[in-house]
Design a protein around this nucleic acid. Sequence first.
DNA 1: GAATAAATCAAACGATCGCTTGAAACGATC
DNA 2: GATCGTTTCAAGCGATCGTTTGATTTATTC
Lengths: 248, 248
Amino acid sequence: MGDSEKTCGSGPGGKSTPSARTRILDAAERIFAEQGVDAASLRRITREAEANIAGVHYYFGSKNGLVLEVYRRLIRPVNKKRLSLLDQARASAGEDPIPLPELVKIFFIPPLLICYQEHCARPHLPRLIGRMFSDAPDLIRKMIDEEFSKMKTRFLEELGMSLGRRPKEELIWKLHFMVGILVNTMLATEFPPLSLLDHHPAEKPAQSLRQILAFALAGIQQDPESLDLSMDDFESYRVDEAVFGEAE
Amino acid sequence: MGDSEKTCGSGPGGKSTPSARTRILDAAERIFAEQGVDAASLRRITREAEANIAGVHYYFGSKNGLVLEVYRRLIRPVNKKRLSLLDQARASAGEDPIPLPELVKIFFIPPLLICYQEHCARPHLPRLIGRMFSDAPDLIRKMIDEEFSKMKTRFLEELGMSLGRRPKEELIWKLHFMVGILVNTMLATEFPPLSLLDHHPAEKPAQSLRQILAFALAGIQQDPESLDLSMDDFESYRVDEAVFGEAE
DNA sequence: GAATAAATCAAACGATCGCTTGAAACGATC
DNA sequence: GATCGTTTCAAGCGATCGTTTGATTTATTC
């Protein structure tokens, strides 16, 4: 159980066949990304993993257990990396706040690098991460919240220091917007919203990262109170409810 | 077919019972939001709609047909409103570009007002809209692209004018980030990412809108080239692939 | 009020789902 | 090489899914 991997070694030093447990996780990860968790059947997963369907319940207890493990294996290394980068930055900043650009880079770059690296071993990852936030049942959603809570807290602390005294509510909103940008960008590495683009983001990772970081950094630095908005003419933006009932 | 609604009127002027077709759409919309499209069964939908299960195929041909119609009914009025607001703004701007704040308001406020209005007739809407981008099979995704294409094109045109000569690629990225912010915000009106907030966004719609608009406006105005980023030290942000295989 | 079309219904079809079972194959230990 | 715990296997369980059918009810038209 404590072992990270069991191999049925064919040759020493050469590539070895992963254990059935790992093969199931790999196949599940890929197929969940393709079809969504609900639509993915254990039969297809185990068939493509070249494993028996009973193995799923032997190793993970249930399909939900498998889903939990797939997500955990996906999230943990990324947040571990981000937390370690935060620690580094905090150490080298001493008593000062971490520079905002560095904070933004720590948030965005680790997950995006996984998606953008040239010969990504798991090209389906962005899609799966994007799915995480919407097609997961409540049980999985609770686990995801737990996995992110530490990173969320640490990041809000540092963001508060770097921005100077701003209302906590504002910090939460800004972290929230960053999550939205990140998730949608990962979803779009495979998908139409960016189809207008004449190249895949992964082909120009530096330019893509620049776009994201610049946008987020500007948004974070902006003081919402400075915005001159007439907030009383909402009515003209309201969608007529009567239209809703109609098909045409 | 051309009729928008058929009512089995009980009393003139009073509330009338919607047709079975409409009742199915209403129930499907709500249950799709609750459980996701895949997990929602036609049996539950028709039970709660007080209709017969065969009605789904009579009216919509298949479950996929029902899903398509639910999404269409949801998206159309919003984009119609946004397009009409764009027309208004273009008319009153004459030869000048539309002011950026106005452009951002047109994009965000119509969909968010639906979610934030006090006694929303359909409190599940944000959740459904958020789901749209991830749990939809390819068929539905194609329809969504079609429904949004006109709005997307018009908005990119106006954004290009308002921002002055910027690369088209930059405009696409910025629209893309706005979509991410919007979708995640709608998803979060019911969901954990904002659970740190001590109030529901709908309780303070003006403040919430201010946060969103300010962030997006700043991000849009920012020139990505002005950002001083050292783009060669990616390695320190890379997540160690070796960690991935491990469970603990 | 008979005839025609539209809408609704109960019942069942075949397929697939997550999950369980009990035995066979495997690997380590003495 | 016998023993014991771990892993893999084929087969099947009950449940639920989307869909179809054919008859019945309701509404419309002459």
